[in-house]
Nucleic acid binder design. Structure first.
Lengths: 189, 189
DNA sequence: TAGATTTATTAACAATTGTTATCGTGGCCC
DNA sequence: GGGCCACGATAACAATTGTTAATAAATCTA
């Protein structure tokens, strides 16, 4: 299950591996809702195969917030950690193979893992990296135009453009699918 | 120095207080640059009085990313923690009274603080809250129009609008000062 | 205090994006 | 296979924002 992790962070995998029995395999079709906006999250997911879209409802339209792929962990962070209603919905885009862990087990696991200094450091490194990615993505929203954001996405994360339906990408870029279609047309010339 | 913290998180203050001698008082005028974009951060700041603007250069224009006020800690997170060039500049807006801590001391302090389970939990709570704030702010960028963002800011953080020059607020909202001026005109009617 | 600089408002025009609607294609389910 | 639905492209028009420039007001500084 954590084979990929083994390569990048062997020390973490060594300890994390002990908790493999906390995780439950789950196979679901495309467009399966894993958590509804407004509900309180009790599960975190690890993606073995497939992808998940995080989105929320804005005045009747859905707005995509993030995409997650293989070997990534996904949850509605604030809801899962603080047991408050989720601001977002989690939904698969493709048929997916997931592993989920219950909050109770996760809390227990984290408590034990955090007690080990070297593991604690690696875990907080992961959190930090996530926050930096977040910030970088956010900065591009402030400084770039929609066209620039599309061109950047095409350059830096082509797998997203290849794999995700276009109207999801449009809302991820903060524009309508009509506008994205125009931009694609302009870029290709 | 940490009087305010004492009220909100007494347990944390009790332990953090021991490191007060790591912090150095610094009094600076308005528009003092504390860290330049591209430099590697070696200091983190705590604001006793005044406010700090975090911004970056985008094609010759400065774009404001965040504001920080009294009783908040500020650093270029990714630069300070990973010793990489900063993506942002830190600059005071008003004459300010700050306390700074050297990275070396900070690392040492955090190592010791994180070894105490209850303190570690509070520290990670603070990080989590910051990340949630971040996300909420980001979501408003995706879903709201500039006018809505201004109205929200007016409602939820009026202290920012009262205290910060308008052209900084404009770039914080992702628009030009001309556009903000028009929006203010329209809203007031 | 006087001059210089910074900050905010407004106008006119250009450029971009949103809205609504239509059309065509391709995939999927019964 | 037929019909339905999801998806993407395009057009026409409305609305919003950016750009540039001129001006006024406020603030800083010598």
């Amino acid at each position: 299950m954590f084979d990929q992790l083994k390569k990048s962070r062997p020390k973490l995998q060594e300890h994390w591996g002990k908790y493999a029995n906390y995780y439950h395999r789950l196979e679901v079709p495309a467009k399966t809702v894993l958590l509804n906006e407004g509900d309180i999250s009790k599960k975190a997911y690890y993606i073995e195969k497939g992808c998940i879209r995080v989105w929320f409802n804005n005045k009747g339209k859905d707005v995509t917030f993030q995409f997650f792929f293989e070997q990534e962990s996904v949850s509605s962070l604030e809801s899962f950690k603080k047991s408050i209603p989720s601001q977002v919905t989690l939904e698969t885009i493709e048929p997916s193979v997931l592993y989920w862990i219950h909050k109770k087990d996760h809390d227990n696991m984290m408590k034990e893992l955090n007690a080990i200094p070297e593991v604690r450091e690696q875990l907080s490194d992961i959190l930090l990296d996530r926050q930096i990615n977040y910030m970088t993505h956010f900065m591009s929203f402030i400084k770039d135009t929609p066209k620039e954001r599309y061109v950047n996405l095409l350059k830096e994360k082509p797998h997203i453009i290849k794999r995700i339906p276009q109207h999801y990408i449009a809302s991820y870029l903060g524009i309508t699918s009509v506008s994205l279609s125009r931009i694609r047309n302009a870029v290709s010339k």
